[in-house]
Write a protein that binds this DNA or RNA. Structure first.
Length: 320
DNA sequence: AAGACGAAAGTGGTTGA
DNA sequence: TCAACAACTTTCGTCTT
């Protein structure tokens, strides 16, 4: 039996494709919504339909009756970037015969021959496969401990794959590169985790993680959105049980601080913390400096310094 | 007693010669 | 490679609520 399911050679693939297919061509936003019922992928930012007829690669689960079982027409497990061969495990066998056992016509045979050659060339029986198996296990473990969403995890996997293609994993610690990929994808997807948070779940040191991260960013020419304190507000806000209204005000204040040029070169977590403190007092949802510094992983002193500076420079009124 | 304040010394990372 | 530097941390004594 001959099954034609081409697996393109990694080198033939456009290197940037894997990332770009996850971002909107109009505005570059990465917040794409899969609409499986309509088969579209939509940018949640500008509403552009990014791809029509996307493949539903989720599992085709339930089948209660015989009829339904018949209808389960898709083959194989769902594909995902977090399995080392994306779950595509079809092989082309060596018979030059079709499914009825008939000999193939010569032109067809030549095609199959080419496909087979590529499949063998790209077959992941090599060190890359072993590397990916370990890496994806580590990715699983780390991302579940960090509690990051599945979409971010998939992005990490894409980044890691590209890092392998670029031959920058070799000779480096797998766990460090996985952690760096996670850090990068968290920043791309705007659900930032700090370097410290990530390395607290691994055995690698912060310095190592930072170096690996730089390596990834430099080599994969990912355009990295600058970390904004606003990205941290919702997370800190949740942990401090602040109302949505207050979180909104905090964002407004941060925006104002940015306009006045008070944010450059400052630790974004410290800034977010200071603004939460200020707005908390103004809006009657006061949190102590200690509480805030704890969730923001900065010291009270930093919260204090930032908040003093903001009050002075923006001439804010804060009741004591 | 808890929270806020600020001074002073120390730390790790960046920059520019 | 080294020193200067800015931002941040640690520590601690004092003041306020």
């Amino acid at each position: 039996m001959v099954i034609i399911k081409e697996r393109p050679h990694p080198k033939l693939e456009d290197k940037t494709e894997a990332i770009e297919e996850l971002s909107c061509p109009e505005c570059g936003s990465l917040d794409l919504i899969n609409d499986m019922t309509r088969g579209e992928m939509i940018c949640s930012n500008c509403g552009v339909v990014v791809t029509e007829r996307i493949m539903d690669n989720g599992p085709e689960w339930r089948a209660f009756t015989n009829d339904e079982r018949e209808k389960r027409s898709r083959v194989g497990a769902p594909t995902t970037y977090t399995v080392h061969d994306k779950g595509l495990s079809t092989m082309i066998d060596w018979h030059d015969k079709d499914i009825y056992g008939k000999k193939l016509p010569p032109n067809r045979r030549a095609q199959i021959y080419r496909l087979r050659k590529w499949q063998i060339r790209t077959r992941v029986h090599s060190s890359i496969a072993r590397n990916l198996v370990i890496a994806m296990n580590e990715l699983d473990r780390l991302s579940s401990q960090l509690g990051i969403p599945k979409s971010v995890k998939e992005t990490s996997a894409v980044i890691y794959r590209r890092a392998i293609e670029r031959r920058i994993i070799r000779g480096r610690s797998i766990s460090a590169m996985v952690a760096a990929a996670i850090y990068a994808s968290c920043r791309i997807r705007k659900v930032p985790r700090t370097l410290d948070e990530i390395c607290s779940y691994t055995s690698i040191r912060r310095k190592e993680l930072g170096r690996s991260y730089r390596l990834i960013v430099d080599n994969l020419n990912i355009h990295m959105p600058i970390a904004s304190p606003i990205d941290y507000v919702s997370r800190f806000g949740e942990e401090l049980e602040l109302s949505g209204r207050v979180q909104q005000k905090v964002c407004e204040l941060l925006e104002k601080a940015r306009e006045y040029g008070l944010t450059a070169g400052k630790d974004p977590t410290g800034l977010a913390a200071a603004c939460i403190y200020i707005i908390g007092i103004q809006e009657g949802e006061r949190r102590t400096q200690r509480e805030i510094s704890k969730v923001a992983h900065v010291t009270e002193v930093t919260v204090r310094n930032r908040y003093k500076e903001l009050v002075k420079k923006l001439k804010l009124k804060v009741e004591v």
